[in-house]
Amino acid sequence: MTLGFTTIYWRDMIRFVRFKTLLVSSLLQPALWLAFFGIAMSSSFDTLMAGMPVPPGAHSVGYLTFMGAGIIAMTTLFTSLFGGIVILFDKNWGLMREILASPMNRNHIIFGIGLSGVTKSFIQAVIIMVFGILIGAAFFAGFSPVEIIVGVAGVLAFVGMFALGFLFLSAAIAISMESPEGLQGVTTLLTMPIFFASNALYPIDAFPEILKILSVYNPMTLLITGIRYFVIGPDFIALGKHYQYTQSDILTSYLGLMLFTAFMFGLAWWRFKKAVVT
C-alpha cells in the first residue's frame, strides 16, 4: 500500500496531459503575466529608479528581474490553490467513491494530488525562468554553471515545498466543499491577501506595521525570498532597496515553509478522515 499515491498521481497527470486547453493555458499564463505586466511595470519603474544612486560595489537589478521571482511564486500559488479542484469534481461526479471504498489509505489521495501539483508547478517555474531570461530578466546573471544548477535546484526546492502546502490546503477545502463555485470563492478570497501582502511586486518595508508583520510571516514572502536568493543572489539592490540575505535567512525561510506545509497536511488529513462521500 505504500505506493498508492503514485496511482493518484498517474491519473492526475493523464488528465493534465489530456486536457489540451488546460495544459496550454497553464503553461502560457505565467509567460503572459511576465510579458505584459512585467514589461509594462519594469519600463515605468526602471525609468523612475534611473536617477537613484547605487552604493559602490552593490549589484543593482531591474524591476523585471525583481518581479520575475514574484511571478514564479504567484503562478505556484494560483496553480496550487486550484490544484485540489479535481477532488471536488471527483466527489461531485461520484468518482471519489471508488477511491474511498478501496483499501488505499486516504493519505495517499492527499500525497498523490500534492505530487502532481508539484510537478505542474515545477514545469511552470522552469518555463518562467527560461522565458524571463529570453525577455531580458537577469536571472542567474554572472553565475557559474554549477551555481546555475544549484540555483535552479534551490528554486525548485522552495517552489515544491510551498506548492505542497497550498495543495494540501486546497485539498482540505475541496473535500469539505459541495460546489466548485464555493471552492473558487474561497480560493479567490485567499489569493488576494496572500499575494499582495507579500514582497512579490514591491518591498514590504514601507508597509504599515500590522501588514508588515503579516507579510513577514506570509509563506509567499518566505518563498519569494528563497527564489530571489537563488536566481539573483544574496546581495542586490532593487527598487532602491538594498537586499542582503544570509544562508541562515534562507534556511529559516525554508523551515518556515516546511512548518506551514506540515500544518496544512495536518488540516487535509483531518478533513479527509472526516469526509463522508456517499
Partner: peptide, 8 residues
C-alpha cells in the same frame, strides 16, 4: 488499470 492499482 487504475482500479487494479488502487487495490494494489
Amino acid at each position: 488499470e487504475f482500479h487494479g492499482r488502487l487495490y494494489n
